[in-house]
Simulated scan of single mutants.
Amino acid sequence: MSLLDQELEPTNDVFVARCDTPGNMHYVLKALEFKEKPKLFCTVNVSAEGMKFIVESHKNFQGIAYLCRGMFSEWDLQVPQIEFRIGLVDFMESVNCIKAKTATVTLSMKDEKKDVKDRRLYIHVVDRKVKADISLPVYNPNTEFVDFMFHEVEVRAKLMLEAKTIKKIFQEIDPKENPCVTFTFNPDECFITINSDTLKSTARFPKFSAEVLDIFCDGDSLAFDYKSMFIKRFKYATNNSSKISLTMNDNGVLSAQFMLAKVEACAACLEFYASSLFSHFITINEKCSLD
C-alpha cells in the first residue's frame, strides 16, 4: 500500500488499481477477441503481479493477456488473489469509454463473499471534468482451464524473430483454404508452410538473417502441424508487436509470446497456447510417411 493510500479513509474495498493509460488496456485485450461467441467471457486473476485475462477455445487453444503491475500507477490488493469471470468486451469498452490520452481509470472490488450473486467490478473513468462510473457483474470462475504444462516439458524447437518478418504470412492464412500450418525446423533455419488444395506456400527463416533473433532445434529436423484457425488468431497480436517468440515442446504444444510495440515490456504482454494436430512432434521422415 502506498503512502497516498494510507491517507485515505478506510473502505471495504479488497482491490483498487489505477491506470493512467486505459487506451493501452483496450489495446492489449483486443488480441483476445478471437472466440466465436456473441458474449465473450474471460477469467481474470488478480495477484501481486498484476491482472491476468484468460480466454480458452475448444480446449486446444488458449489466449492470455498480462496487464502487469507496471501498467498501474496505483495498486492495492488486500488479499492474496482474486479470481472471477467477466464479459471481456464489456470490460474493454468500459475502461476505454472516454477516448482521451489524459483519461484515467480506477478499478475496484468490494469485500464480498463468493456466494454473493451480485458481485461487481467498479470502474471509474475520469478526464478533466468528464466522469463515468460503471459497475460490471462478475461471476465465479467455474471453468477449469486446460493445463498445457508447457514449462514442465522439454522444449524441442524455438523461433524468435522480428514481428514484421512474419506478419504477412499470418495475414494470408485462410482457414477455409488452408487447414493446417506446418513449422519445420533444423538447426540453421525454420520453414513455415501453408498448404491448400491448389497452392503450397513456404517461407524460409535462416539463422543468419538479421530479422531472426534465435533458432533452436533439438534434432536434425523436426516438424509441427497446427490448425490454421489457431495460427490465424495471432494476426492482431502480430500486427501490434515488435518481437515474437514461437516455442514448441515435447508434446507438440506451441507457446507464442508477443512483445507489444506500443507498451513497455514491464507493463503488458500476450501469450497463446495451441495443441498440435498430432499428439507429439514428428520428424521429417515420419511426416513423409504420413503424407
Rank of each mutant, 00 (worst) to 15 (best):
T106A: 11
V95E: 01
I215L: 10
S108Y: 08
N249W: 01
L67I: 07
F53L: 07
F84G: 02
H124K: 11
P179I: 01
L277P: 00
I166C: 07
D76K: 14
K117G: 11
E264R: 09
P175N: 08
S276K: 06
E177R: 11
N45T: 15
A268Y: 01
M25I: 15
F34V: 12
K35Q: 10
V263L: 06
D225M: 07
E264F: 00
A157M: 07
C190D: 03
A274N: 02
D111I: 12
A132G: 06
N45S: 15
I173E: 06
A132R: 06
D250L: 12
M149F: 03
M51Y: 10
C68L: 15
N178Y: 11
Q171S: 13
S275T: 14
P175K: 06
Y226H: 08
V253Q: 03
V95F: 04
T198N: 12
Y236G: 10
Y273V: 00
K117W: 09
V125W: 02
K101F: 07
E162Q: 13
P80R: 12
T184W: 03
K131H: 12
F183C: 04
T184D: 06
D147L: 07
N239D: 15
S255P: 01
V79N: 05
L213M: 13
F72C: 05
E154N: 13
R120D: 08
D111P: 02
E162V: 03
K52W: 03
H280M: 13
L8K: 15
V116L: 12
A223S: 14
S196K: 09
A65G: 11
I192W: 04
A31Q: 06
E74V: 03
F72T: 02
T11L: 09
S276E: 07
R120C: 10
S221T: 13
Y66C: 11
F170C: 08
L270A: 02
F170S: 03
F208C: 08
R85G: 03
D225L: 09
T198D: 11
C97M: 07
F148T: 07
D13V: 03
V155I: 15
I123S: 04
K200S: 10
K243W: 02
K59V: 05
I98E: 01
V46E: 02
D111E: 15
L290V: 11
A48L: 06
E271F: 01
E286M: 08
D214K: 14
C97E: 00
Q6C: 12
C269V: 04
V46L: 06
F191V: 06
G87W: 00
D250V: 11
T43E: 06
L67N: 03
L4Q: 13
P22I: 00
S242V: 11
K207W: 05
D118S: 13
E152M: 10
